[in-house]
């Protein structure tokens, strides 16, 4: 079970996600996002490499989540298992992910929620004594 909770937002869906490491946080955020979209997790049989760069970790998280969303809605790639390497330098962050997934057509199969995008509004990615926390608002 992913450790997360909902944040109240008048129009959209906000989540607060917890993890022990930054890599785990990225993975947990992706799992929470796709958990909002659908319950099924088919057996993965294809692999995609997703590499995303940004100037800071907040931008990196949103860019990565939106990359996964558009791979799903444009190319029907449903991510299931994540293998992530996060490289951080002063003003350059990169996430290199090898993702096992399955072909899933959201236009033929029933999904729970259509998420338009992860937004920067009220975005937080923080490390504290007990681990990592991210707060993300999704436009639905």
């Amino acid at each position: 079970m992913i450790d997360f909770e909902f944040i109240e937002h008048t129009a959209d869906v906000g989540v607060r996600v917890y993890a022990d490491t930054s890599e785990q946080l990225f993975k947990n955020c992706a799992e929470v996002l796709f958990g909002l979209i659908l319950d099924d997790r088919p057996k993965p049989d294809i692999e995609e490499t997703v590499v995303v760069e940004a100037e800071d970790i907040e931008e990196l998280l949103i860019t990565w989540l939106n990359e996964l969303l558009s791979l799903f809605f444009a190319y029907r790639f449903l991510p299931v298992d994540y293998d992530i390497i996060l490289e951080e330098r002063e003003d350059y962050k990169v996430i290199k992910s090898r993702i096992k997934g399955a072909n899933f057509d959201p236009y033929q199969n029933k999904i729970k929620m259509e998420i338009k995008a992860a937004t920067y509004h009220d975005l937080k990615v923080e490390k504290n004594d007990s681990g990592w926390i991210a707060e993300v608002i999704f436009d639905v």
Partner: peptide, 27 residues
Amino acid sequence: GYQVCDDYVKVMGKCLSKYAIKVPDRQ
């Protein structure tokens, strides 16, 4: 439309430093 917006929020994020624009919310 969602993809067009997402593509250009990314582009314009980089414009904030390029054009020295200060806004309190990156969105």
